[in-house]
Simulated assay, not measured.
Amino acid sequence: MQKLLYERFAAAMKGVCLRYCKTSFEAEDIMHDAFLKVFKNIDKFKGDCPLEGWVRRITINTALSHLRSRLHKTEASETDELIEIAEPETTFSAFAAEELMELVRSLPPKYQAVFNLQAIEGYSYKEISEMLDVPEVTCRSHYMRARNMLREMVEKSNRIYHEKIS
């Protein structure tokens, strides 16, 4: 049963892990940890949600746990304020999904996690705040900063592209 479960969900869960780390190797490591938790707790699955959703939640929580431990090792505690920034229109649609995910992976880990949880996974700021154990205002600030950083990276890429073809 474990083999079937792994074969069914491994590729999708590796994709989830890649959104929270920098390398494929790190993503595989997190994914394997997540599957160990899935196998250990499979008897607790009640069937009240899709199995893939349950596995995804465990995978996300494992990735966040890994991210938290990495952040605590490398960053001093900081206080973030919510900064209101007018959001000019930027077209991300010109980028291929893989190119955009590569840019997301290049974000600082704290911004990357909040961006992934909010924009891709669809969690609310309140839920993200609870998952990451940070104030909700910090989540909002990190999300806005991540969007701004991504916007700047896209605009820079567009400028470089247009300079090359000119």
Rank of each mutant, 00 (worst) to 15 (best):
L67D: 14
T23M: 11
F95E: 00
F35Q: 01
C139E: 02
A11R: 13
A11I: 12
G47W: 15
V38G: 01
G53Q: 10
T62E: 15
E52Q: 10
V16C: 08
K126Y: 15
E78L: 05
A12D: 15
G122N: 07
T90F: 07
G122T: 01
F9I: 08
V104S: 01
L132E: 08
K126Q: 15
A34I: 12
E130R: 05
R145W: 09
L107V: 07
L107H: 03
I128H: 07
R68K: 10
Y125M: 08
F92N: 00
F92R: 00
E52S: 09
F45G: 13
M149R: 01
R147V: 03
V104P: 02
S124P: 13
G47R: 14
T79Q: 10
V134G: 03
E26F: 13
Y20M: 03
F25R: 04
K73P: 06
S69Q: 08
K46L: 15
A113C: 14
T138K: 02
A63E: 12
P108I: 05
I120C: 04
R19A: 13
K110M: 07
L71Q: 07
I120K: 02
A63I: 05
N116C: 03
C139F: 01
A96G: 08
T74W: 11
E130H: 11
G53M: 07
E75C: 07
V55S: 04
L51V: 08
N41V: 01
I60Q: 00
E84N: 05
L82W: 14
K44S: 14
S106D: 11
R105K: 02
E127M: 09
I58R: 14
D43Q: 14
C49L: 14
M13T: 11
